[in-house]
Design a protein around this nucleic acid. Structure first.
Lengths: 141, 141
DNA sequence: GTTGACTCTGTAGTGGCTCCAGGGGCCATG
DNA sequence: CATGGCCCCTGGAGCCACTACAGAGTCAAC
């Protein structure tokens, strides 16, 4: 527990979030504007750490800023039902699973492409498969 | 084989690439500027289709514009060795594999998060795990 | 009072498009 | 010849989630 308010650098160190990013989050309304020192420095308190960690964790999990905004709104009302959160996780999970499937197909194609002929471009499987998908060895562009 | 030159709309239909995207590719030097009609319309020929399909296929495989630029340069010199292309595919494959690994971890975390308590936010596992990673059921923000 | 680390604001850049406004070209029909 | 409808033109702004600057001010230690 920190008792004294701290500057943006301190918040950055405590959360691992870039200083510029913290200011950006404030600008887009994700972080409430903190009090200021006489000289105009931002003075954060513990609840800012909590909130920023929440945001950070959401980002790490791949949620969009808007989704996190919604989750934060939910989190602020402990008595509201959490179907909304459940929905968002399911939707996001779907998306991630789709992305994995896409990338897996991609990976397989790339694996087929590698082990190039080891010769010149004219016979190159890589260039060939970019020129005409599905078949190797085609004319170059 | 098309014998007559065609407008940008025709190129778009033949390649599935958005008209705006085609103009964008021209602007950034990925597509050579075509001839123009008297009225100023772009007049494309078959080699434009080939090149655009190459670009499109590269993008579908997840290559960056810059990588595709390099691959195009390679493809234009059929006698050059294709190590460069091989290298690029291997690098990209690495990246894709890393991305899959990351997303798989993510997926597992999201799977743990779902099947929410079905109650209110205060007891919600989702909100809890965003608040304090690793453990469920924490105070909200 | 001077140093040096920290912070401030505002703006621009990243990638790879996508969209829009406001205008002009082209062709078929009346 | 005029009209309508579709296509195309340019230039610029907007998207996401930051990140990187420039140029100035603040603060604490020595």
């Amino acid at each position: 527990m920190t008792l004294q308010p701290f500057n943006i650098g301190g918040l950055s160190r405590q959360t691992g979030v870039n200083i510029e990013t913290i200011r950006y989050y404030e600008k887009i309304g994700m972080l409430p504007p903190p009090a200021r020192s006489q000289g105009g420095f931002r003075q954060y308190e513990d609840h800012h750490i909590q909130r920023l960690r929440f945001i950070r964790r959401g980002r790490d999990l791949g949620f969009s800023i808007d989704s996190i905004r919604a989750l934060l709104t939910l989190a602020e009302r402990p008595d509201s039902p959490c179907e909304g959160a459940d929905q968002m996780v399911l939707l996001h999970l779907d998306e991630v699973e789709r992305k994995i499937a896409d990338l897996t197909l991609l990976r397989d194609e790339l694996r087929k492409m590698k082990n190039c002929c080891g010769q010149v471009v004219a016979q190159c499987q890589i260039i060939g498969s970019l020129t005409a998908p599905g078949s190797a060895q085609q004319d170059a562009i």
